[in-house]
């Protein structure tokens, strides 16, 4: 053996999972909701999705070069952000506005803070909030399903009196953002992520659960509680945005605190008339993650109280 062998620190074997695989799983899990959104809202939704994904990838490529950040386009994290932004937009949202949202998410929130793994809030949530504040009318103009003409309708949460049945809410045959309407499609994606061990069910369950429980306590009405859980993007937010690794706690206890925090803030914001509870709740809890991590450090195996 003439040449030197490769040496490195142990371990010398690695499991095959990588970041790209995880992001691909997230994309796959969003497929049911995406396809359903396109079927429901037509080609305009498809265009919006394509534009968001593409512009996120372009911004990621350029910004990463500019800021010399680590990472690669192939890790697909920008594609996930793009898809999530699109699913959070009304179907006929102007394309140029969506591109601004993607710019905000990828360039400002993600790459300017160091790229993948360094953003302190979820880029897709931040984009949604920035667009909502910048273009409030467009962000709240919704459309009837199966009707490409602009017939505006309020989302169930925005209605004075909701006439939709639980069944209609579950299937999502109503107005809303492209990807938020069908609870069933979102749940299928969530179950896929849990089975693939990409996410643990802790955050979604504590988030959705606390929205339901708190609404039940406040209203004393079970149907109100069910309605609160099934509308306003709770499922989309709880399964796909609150579980973002970078901006959620790593310990189980931390995840429970985070999930309940999201749920409680959602209900509080909603009680003050604004329909936009989920996004603000998640972004607020995102900011608390370092502190939640700080107070939930686990005691190591064999830890003794008196020694410390």
């Amino acid at each position: 053996m003439s040449s030197l062998l490769n040496v490195s620190s142990s371990p010398h074997i690695r499991q095959s999972d990588n970041t790209t695989g995880i992001m691909l799983d997230v994309l796959i899990s969003l497929l049911p909701a995406t396809v359903f959104g396109i079927v429901l809202f037509g080609y305009r939704a498809a265009i919006l999705i394509a534009v968001c994904v593409a512009s996120c990838l372009v911004f990621e490529f350029l910004a990463r070069k500019l800021f010399k950040n680590q990472g690669s386009l192939l890790d697909l994290s920008a594609a996930v952000t793009g898809l999530l932004i699109a699913l959070n937009l009304p179907p006929r949202f102007p394309v140029w506005m969506a591109i601004i949202g993607c710019f905000a998410a990828i360039v400002v929130v993600k790459q300017m803070f160091g790229g993948l793994g360094h953003n302190f809030v979820n880029p897709a949530i931040a984009a949604r909030i920035i667009l909502l504040i910048s273009f409030p009318t467009h962000m709240t103009t919704y459309h009837e399903p199966f009707n490409t003409d602009a017939i505006t309708t309020a989302t169930p949460l925005g209605m004075e009196e909701c006439y939709l049945s639980v069944k209609e809410l579950l299937f999502g045959l109503h107005g809303g953002s492209i990807g938020e309407t069908s609870v069933i499609m979102l749940a299928i994606g969530g179950i896929y992520l849990i089975i693939r061990r990409v996410i643990s069910p802790t955050i979604p369950l504590s988030f959705i659960g606390s929205v339901g429980v708190l609404t039940l306590i406040l209203s004393g009405n079970l149907s109100d509680a069910i309605f609160a859980m099934l509308t306003g993007g709770v499922f989309l937010g709880a399964i796909f945005m609150a579980t973002d690794y970078v901006t959620s706690p790593t310990t189980t206890l931390g995840k429970i605190i985070f999930g309940i925090g999201c749920g409680v803030i959602t209900v509080i914001i909603r009680s003050g008339a604004a329909a936009e509870g989920v996004s603000f709740a998640i972004i607020f809890m995102n900011l608390l993650v370092p502190h939640i991590d700080g107070i939930t450090v686990r005691k190591p195996f064999g830890w003794e109280a008196k020694k410390q």
Partner: peptide
């Protein structure tokens, strides 16, 4: 060659796998 290192995405798998209950990523 060694597998290429990518940025930590805080997935928490290291902490979940640690038999001593540490958080290597942190």
């Amino acid at each position: 060659t060694l597998p290429e290192t990518t940025p930590c995405i805080r997935c928490g798998r290291c902490a979940a796998a640690c038999p001593m209950k540490l958080n290597p990523a942190s």
